[in-house]
Design a protein around this nucleic acid. Structure first.
Length: 311
DNA sequence: CTAATAACGCGTCATAGCAG
DNA sequence: CTGCTATGACGCGTTATTAG
């Protein structure tokens, strides 16, 4: 798409998003309130507890309260009525207990702790970091580094890393290089010990004996970080004694980055579960439609048998 | 061919619900 | 009570499809 087209598209995007919201709610959900701004969204949220579409339909069906009586219901009662927001996994597992054909969503096991599943097969990493481009870097006990792409499945996302520290051209520097599948040249990440891995911008720093550093394989250095945190970086520093306001601010920034990263992964996982849930609902609909058709046919047959035509 | 629209995914924020 | 997780909602960007 051309640049100009993108600009015009952005102009219409708000309305489009609202329409998309409407579209997604035409399947029976009564949650539909199209908001143009976050403030409106918040107002609605305070008045209307969000519940997944299916659960909310069920809630409305069960309570079936007239709109006039809303003022009568106090917040406590509303809480009881709306009950707990169910997770897709639970809903699906409940569904699948009814229908054998519906597969269950597996309960998360060891990777439950917000850790990307595609690095679960690694050799017990001591630290996991995320680069500015979303890749994960795991540093194992022995110093081995593994990189995984969050979008890829299993070990496909793992990328080989080679490290040399003894022959580094600069003191306290370790060259890290890896064969990036889609190197965009903006990789930055920290490693423990107050060191930082940065793309090797200086061609002189790339050791000549590392032939792989040329071509498609970018070189990285682990070295002492600069005073200011580069944008998009997160550091897993040990929260020891914090004194200065700057350290406190850095700690807050680090916590925020960590929280955002976890939430990012949680959102991805949530979307994946939601898609799976919707797929299973669709397959269940198909099964029930077939069942319904069969029952109707059976009913017609029984009708014919029990009430022969009087002619 | 170009612009408009639809569909999808992502990151983020707010918040309900739960566990410790 | 506090921290964490899961999820709805929003805004944005990208890609595919459609209409003129």
């Amino acid at each position: 798409m051309s640049k100009s087209g993108k600009k015009k598209y952005i102009k219409t995007n708000i309305r489009q998003t609202a329409m998309a919201t409407l579209d997604s709610q035409q399947d029976g959900s009564v949650l539909g309130t199209v908001m143009g701004s976050r403030s409106a969204h918040l107002q609605t949220r305070t008045a209307q507890t969000p519940v997944p579409a299916v659960a909310q339909v069920a809630t409305v069906t069960e309570t079936d309260e007239p709109a006039d009586s809303e003022g009568i219901i106090d917040s406590h009662k509303q809480r009881e009525i709306l009950s707990r927001r169910p997770s897709y996994r639970r809903i699906l597992n409940e569904l699948s207990s009814d229908v054998p054909g519906v597969p269950k969503i597996e309960e998360e096991k060891s990777e439950e702790g917000g850790r990307p599943s595609n690095i679960s097969s690694m050799a017990v990493p001591t630290s996991i970091y995320q680069t500015s481009t979303g890749q994960y870097i795991a540093i194992a006990q022995g110093g081995a580094i593994q990189i995984s792409n969050p979008g890829s499945e299993g070990v496909q996302g793992l990328q080989a890393l080679t490290m040399t520290s003894s022959g580094a051209p600069t003191p306290n520097a370790t060259i890290v290089q890896y064969a990036a599948q889609a190197a965009d040249g903006t990789q930055q990440f920290f490693v423990p010990g107050s060191q930082v891995v940065v793309p090797d911008e200086d061609p002189e720093l790339a050791p000549s004996h590392m032939a792989a550093a040329t071509g498609d394989m970018p070189a990285y250095q682990i070295r002492a970080p600069a005073t200011a945190l580069p944008q998009g970086m997160m550091m897993a520093a040990s929260p020891g004694t914090l004194h200065s306001p700057q350290q406190l601010a850095e700690e807050a920034t680090r916590k925020r980055e960590l929280r955002l990263m976890k939430n990012r992964e949680a959102a991805k996982e949530c979307r994946r579960r939601k898609k799976e849930y919707v797929k299973c609902l669709e397959s269940r609909v198909a099964v029930l439609e077939v069942q319904n058709k069969k029952l109707i046919e059976e009913l017609e047959t029984l009708k014919d048998i029990c009430s022969p035509k009087a002619d």
